[in-house]
């Protein structure tokens, strides 16, 4: 899978502009076609006219006039999508999307880019799709949602793997509280931070954090876990509890 936006030129020959060639052999289906859609990449001016094709796997925009011009992005790389209607943010109502380029360190192209620079699609982090028929925005949003849900993260296939393979136990933790993590190759951490009553919501003062993993890529999770420093009376009994558990285990629980 290619992360981010890419050039897409595979068109069928039917009609003047053709339609995108889909990977039907692997079950890709066309979900929606929206004619008369302009596309704006990053901070660049919108390109039009074009047609938007939404398949079960990706979003494709094809120029109506230039057969060699087209873009595609997999739903796996669409981090966020939304309906944007504020004329101050963008001149026309549009579907706003953020694109995960898979390149976390790079400065995003969209923020400060000069429109005259050559276009590097792989660095584009924002894409706006502007249908001339604004009434279709909500329908498009819903189709995006539906297709995003059809494309969950690629998680390892071997279901027979016992669960404890990727669970690290207290025993695996080093004496200096180092966290020795996880053989599971595909690990995505999601951390839930709980804030106590009466505390103004601030990111910098965690009281209790939960990590949940659905998982892909150990590199993400490790730093978050090391951030955790919990000083929370609510869990004071946990040590005792764990001891009890262990005792229980010894007695063949």
């Amino acid at each position: 899978m290619v992360a981010g936006l890419r050039v897409f030129t595979e068109r069928s020959d039917d009609g003047a502009a053709g339609t995108p060639v889909l990977d039907t052999a692997n079950g890709e289906e066309l979900m929606h076609v929206q004619p008369a859609v302009a596309i704006a990449l990053g901070n660049r001016p919108p390109e039009s006219p074009g047609t938007l094709y939404i398949s079960t796997k990706k979003v494709v925009w094809l120029s109506d006039t230039e057969r060699t011009k087209g873009y595609a992005v997999d739903f796996l790389s669409v981090s966020l999508h939304a309906v944007s209607r504020d004329p101050e943010a963008f001149s026309s109502p549009c579907i706003y999307t953020q694109i995960d380029t898979g390149d976390e360190d790079e400065e995003s192209e969209s923020s400060d880019s000069d429109s005259n620079e050559p276009l590097d699609l792989s660095k584009i982090t924002e894409m706006r799709l502007v249908p001339s028929d604004h009434t279709q925005l909500d329908a498009l949003f819903d189709i995006f949602c539906e297709c995003a849900e059809l494309n969950p993260e690629l998680v390892e296939e071997n279901e027979n793997e016992p669960e404890h393979n990727w669970i690290f136990s207290a025993d695996q933790l080093g004496p200096n509280m180092g966290l020795e993590i996880i053989k599971q190759p595909l690990l995505r951490g999601c951390l839930i931070r709980l804030l106590p009553d009466g505390v103004d919501q601030e990111w910098d003062s965690p009281q209790a954090d939960f990590i949940i993993g659905q998982l892909n890529g150990t590199h993400d999770l490790a730093p978050h876990m090391l951030e955790l420093q919990i000083n929370d009376q609510r869990f004071e009994d946990a040590e005792e509890m764990e001891t009890n558990n262990r005792n229980g285990d010894q007695h063949g629980m």
Partner: peptide, 27 residues
């Protein structure tokens, strides 16, 4: 540029934190 957005769909894989309302958390 996100100011104008009133509703959005966020892919689970790009979420780092979810901050919950204290009253919604039954510890």
């Amino acid at each position: 540029h996100m100011l104008s957005v009133r509703n959005c769909f966020i892919r689970g894989s790009v979420v780092r934190y979810v901050q919950l309302p204290p009253e919604g958390v039954d510890i």
